[in-house]
Design a protein around this nucleic acid. Structure first.
Lengths: 212, 212
DNA sequence: AGGTGTGAACACTTTCACAGCA
DNA sequence: TGCTGTGAAAGTGTTCACACCT
């Protein structure tokens, strides 16, 4: 049970969890590292290495119990309780994220929405009302929020992040294509769709030049 | 000028490009690997290693010319021409992506939008009209599209991808949380926001248990 | 002098191969 | 017998340190 877990391992655990749920729905009671590997597009050795960092969940000769392993992975990822999230930026992307059913379904609840545009303040979105961004600290305290989703214009990203961190937020999902500066103990995940398209552009350009 | 370029290098190149544009706007003529590294939150050695894989763009003692390096990075990433993209799935996420100004601004044009819902067919979005998903092959041919953005329900992701690949698509930006199976020469970038939140959940859980 | 380009050292990740347990 | 758990080997990516050029 090691100290440092790599980002790739965490990504794969998340992937394993989705696959375990599929196997569970399909009625499987047990599965092997080989089964998991095939579904996750990796190798059996990789699956076993990943899991063995956190404990010994399988039985030699048998494989892993589906419901038991699922619970363990959830516990490893910290998914035993629902996370309370504040969303800042009620633009097009913010709206799509708010409606995104997979979040709530998987234990991520958006409990408040804030925006800088006075026109939007007071608008009702489902069961939340859009509040002014300058009440961020109060809202975080009131809702006991632990994470922040940032879908604001680039210039606003760092100042809003700073306020949220001061108010006690430790995790940020950042959609602004800027490099946020945060203190130790605060975690940022960037979602940068232009970067993804540029990676595709790179791959396509190279493969096109290799094959006439 | 090497054969295999790592995914991390490509991500960083994309990041460097954004920083070069900032320096250009600020009027800088030249910058050092140190400058780039600081802005990109990496090391000067990393920057030089990344760039040197593709050529020798700097002058010893001077640094790199901002406009020249920018052009080189664009060329490396295959960004000299605008990419033509078909978007399938006109739901909430599809709408947000269609409106996302950074795509067009950076040379990624969404030239057609398709959906399975008969209610949506014929709806005008900006300068495109939503077309039925079963005309995908025709639309790809007509528009000479090279990439696909997939924002469809999970069950539809693989079948739509298959049709697009048959019609000549080689790059897919996939928002469905499923593992797409694609042949060699086809590239997929996954955007999985639940996975990002689960990574934050993992980090927060561990850091919380380490500090009372 | 000053900063690039790069081989060599180091660190980290993945794969291999097999001992050991159900 | 069958499949896990894991050291050891191989492979990749990052950092160091310095020769070299402007």
């Amino acid at each position: 049970m090691s100290r440092n877990v790599s980002a790739s391992t965490v990504r794969r655990l998340s992937h394993y969890l989705r696959i375990l749920e599929q196997f569970e729905r399909a009625g499987s009671v047990t599965l092997s590292s080989e089964d998991l590997a095939e579904a996750a597009d990796t190798t059996a050795a990789q699956v076993r290495k990943d899991l063995s960092q956190f404990g010994s969940f399988g039985k030699r000769g048998f494989g892993y119990p589906v419901p038991g392993l699922k619970r363990h992975v959830q516990q490893i990822l910290g998914l035993e309780h629902a996370w309370r999230i504040v969303l800042v930026g009620a633009g097009r992307i913010g709206a799509a994220l708010f409606e995104y059913a997979n979040f709530r379904r998987r234990g991520f609840s958006i409990v408040a929405v804030l925006d800088a545009d006075p026109e939007k303040i007071g608008t009702q979105w489902g069961d939340v009302t859009i509040e002014p961004v300058d009440t961020l600290a109060d809202v975080i305290a009131r809702e006991q929020a632990e994470m922040l989703i940032l879908s604001v214009p680039n210039e606003a990203a760092q100042p809003v992040a700073d306020q949220a961190i001061t108010a006690g937020i430790h995790g940020i999902l950042n959609f602004a294509p800027v490099q946020l500066r945060v203190p130790d103990g605060v975690f940022v995940q960037d979602v940068n769709m232009v970067m993804e398209l540029e990676a595709l552009s790179f791959d396509l350009s190279r493969s096109a030049s290799k094959r006439p």
